[in-house]
Amino acid sequence: VKKMAKAIMADPNKADEVYKKWADKGYTLTQMSNFLKSKTAGKYDRVYNGYVIHLD
């Protein structure tokens, strides 16, 4: 998940494709939050927020 999150950060155009894969795998927002937690607070906030919007 972190590898794909980094791919989104490097190229935001990949976001919809990645979010669809995550949704197809049934990842919940709680799971995504836990996967994307980082020592650098807020590092993956943009990715998480994008997934929230995708699921909505």
Results as ranks from 00 to 15, higher is better:
7 A>M: 15
29 L>G: 05
10 A>M: 13
12 P>T: 05
21 K>Q: 15
37 K>T: 10
24 D>V: 08
29 L>S: 08
20 K>N: 08
40 T>S: 10
54 H>F: 15
8 I>Y: 02
48 Y>P: 00
24 D>Q: 13
13 N>R: 14
22 W>Y: 02
45 D>A: 11
1 V>K: 04
7 A>E: 13
18 V>G: 03
36 L>I: 02
4 M>E: 14
38 S>H: 08
17 E>R: 08
41 A>Q: 12
11 D>Q: 07
4 M>R: 04
13 N>Q: 11
37 K>C: 13
26 G>A: 06
45 D>I: 07
41 A>H: 11
42 G>P: 03
26 G>T: 02
13 N>C: 14
49 N>H: 12
27 Y>V: 04
32 M>P: 00
36 L>A: 00
20 K>G: 08
55 L>D: 01
41 A>P: 15
17 E>Q: 10
44 Y>R: 02
11 D>V: 05
26 G>I: 04
25 K>E: 13
14 K>I: 15
23 A>I: 05
10 A>E: 12
29 L>C: 06
10 A>V: 10
30 T>Y: 12
20 K>E: 07
3 K>A: 13
15 A>F: 04
32 M>T: 00
17 E>L: 09
48 Y>G: 01
38 S>M: 06
1 V>F: 08
13 N>I: 09
27 Y>L: 08
33 S>A: 15
45 D>K: 07
3 K>Q: 12
18 V>S: 03
14 K>C: 12
28 T>S: 09
54 H>T: 04
16 D>F: 14
9 M>F: 07
48 Y>D: 01
18 V>P: 00
51 Y>H: 02
22 W>V: 00
3 K>L: 11
15 A>G: 06
26 G>D: 02
24 D>G: 10
35 F>L: 12
55 L>N: 04
31 Q>R: 05
27 Y>E: 00
38 S>I: 06
43 K>E: 12
53 I>T: 12
28 T>P: 00
9 M>S: 03
33 S>E: 11
40 T>Q: 11
27 Y>F: 10
3 K>S: 11
22 W>R: 00
31 Q>Y: 04
56 D>N: 15
19 Y>F: 08
37 K>V: 08
2 K>R: 12
49 N>I: 12
29 L>R: 09
15 A>N: 03
23 A>F: 08
3 K>C: 14
6 K>W: 10
52 V>R: 15
23 A>Y: 09
52 V>M: 13
51 Y>K: 01
32 M>I: 15
19 Y>V: 01
46 R>A: 15
39 K>T: 13
48 Y>V: 07
20 K>Q: 12
55 L>Q: 03
5 A>L: 07
49 N>G: 08
48 Y>L: 15
20 K>Y: 07
20 K>M: 09
43 K>G: 05
33 S>G: 12
19 Y>A: 00
8 I>A: 07
33 S>F: 14
1 V>T: 04
5 A>C: 06
22 W>K: 01
3 K>T: 10
20 K>R: 13
18 V>L: 06
40 T>L: 08
30 T>A: 13
54 H>L: 05
3 K>G: 08
47 V>G: 01
11 D>E: 08
31 Q>P: 00
52 V>Y: 06
2 K>N: 03
37 K>M: 10
7 A>C: 11
34 N>Y: 13
55 L>I: 08
30 T>G: 11
51 Y>A: 01
8 I>T: 03
5 A>P: 01
30 T>M: 13
17 E>A: 12
35 F>I: 09
35 F>A: 07
4 M>D: 15
28 T>R: 02
5 A>V: 04
41 A>E: 13
48 Y>M: 11
4 M>Y: 07
17 E>G: 10
30 T>S: 13
46 R>H: 13
36 L>V: 01
45 D>T: 07
37 K>Q: 12
17 E>C: 12
21 K>T: 14
36 L>W: 04
26 G>K: 06
1 V>D: 02
36 L>R: 00
48 Y>S: 00
4 M>I: 05
34 N>T: 11
20 K>A: 10
56 D>V: 14
45 D>C: 09
5 A>S: 03
3 K>M: 13
44 Y>I: 03
23 A>Q: 10
18 V>K: 02
37 K>N: 09
8 I>Q: 00
2 K>I: 13
40 T>W: 09
26 G>V: 01
21 K>A: 15
17 E>D: 10
15 A>L: 05
14 K>W: 06
55 L>P: 00
14 K>N: 09
28 T>K: 02
28 T>E: 02
8 I>N: 02
9 M>D: 02
8 I>D: 03
12 P>W: 15
45 D>P: 01
18 V>N: 03
5 A>G: 03
32 M>D: 01
56 D>F: 14
11 D>S: 07
29 L>A: 12
52 V>D: 04
17 E>Y: 11
22 W>M: 01
4 M>Q: 14
21 K>V: 13
30 T>K: 13
45 D>E: 09
